[in-house]
């Protein structure tokens, strides 16, 4: 995250250079010096991805509960609501992309690390089901540390639920495009995200199954320097394309036009 240095300047957390706030925002929060793609809120991501003013939110009334009465979960939920100005880690809805109707779900990492609990899983599932029902391509933009531990096995089952919804898209000939942003990890990566028709990925995004703390716990210590980066995943054939932020909208437009071609006649 870029750190604020007064009002007009920011410091890039990656290269430590001082950047004009205005330049930084105009550059879609990509550092003009080192090219580091800083994280975006879901709302900002929606603004820079879809046709201006066309996004209509769905499922906005879904709220997380604390079914296991898990330690500190309730407080974390409340704190995240204040911090991120969303109600959970995913915003879903309909939008236009270069005039073409799509359905979408966009993750917000600032809400409990973008973790997939019941609400997040339900929004992903509804998005994919909506894609099938309305015959529109689905675009899901991921940013998540994985399943939401605080909902225990219920959150693990969101992996199954969302993956089941992908199987419907496949059967009904509805394209599903996933965009991996920093980070796309664990329970999200090991479910619906990895079985998308097309996977695009932002540069330097963290992409992998287990985080470093869990890895250490499992005795995995020596790893390549670029382990679990977008570039490493790309080299190993796990994603289709690394796309810089400025070109993401254009790439999505091309894909929707081609893959979704049969739906728009």
């Amino acid at each position: 995250m870029a750190q604020t240095k007064g009002e007009a300047f920011l410091q890039c957390s990656n290269c430590k250079k001082t950047v004009f706030s205005v330049d930084f925002e105009q550059n879609l929060r990509v550092c003009p010096y080192c090219g580091f793609h800083h994280r975006l809120s879901a709302k900002l991501r929606i603004d820079i991805t879809f046709d201006p003013g066309t996004f209509e939110e769905c499922d906005a009334d879904l709220r997380s509960l604390d079914p296991l009465e898990f330690p500190e979960y309730h407080a974390k939920l409340e704190a995240s609501k204040l911090k991120s100005d969303t109600h959970d880690s995913m915003i879903s809805g309909r939008a236009l992309l270069d005039g073409k109707a799509v359905v979408t779900a966009v993750a917000d990492f600032s809400f409990m690390g973008g973790s997939m609990g019941s609400v997040n899983g339900e929004k992903v599932t509804r998005t994919l089901e909506r894609a099938v029902d309305e015959k529109k391509p689905a675009i899901i933009i991921c940013a998540s540390g994985g399943a939401r531990m605080q909902e225990g096995l219920i959150s693990l089952m969101q992996m199954a639920k969302t993956t089941a919804a992908v199987s419907r898209c496949n059967r009904e000939g509805v394209p599903f495009i996933a965009v991996f942003t920093d980070p796309t990890m664990a329970g999200v990566l090991a479910s619906y995200a990895s079985v998308a028709d097309v996977i695009l990925c932002e540069p330097k995004a963290l992409v992998g199954l287990s985080g470093s703390r869990v890895n250490k716990q499992a005795g995995v210590h020596r790893v390549p320097d670029d382990f679990q980066t977008a570039e490493w995943a790309f080299e190993h054939g796990m994603v289709d394309k690394i796309v810089v932020r400025k070109e993401m909208r254009g790439t999505l437009i091309n894909l929707v036009k081609t893959l979704g071609g049969a739906l728009y006649v």
Partner: peptide, 17 residues
């Protein structure tokens, strides 16, 4: 590392799918 390199996440997801 080798499991990541060969796509362990995709393996799990594809199994469920």
């Amino acid at each position: 590392v080798e499991s990541e390199a060969r796509g362990i996440s995709e393996g799990i997801a594809a199994g469920m799918l």
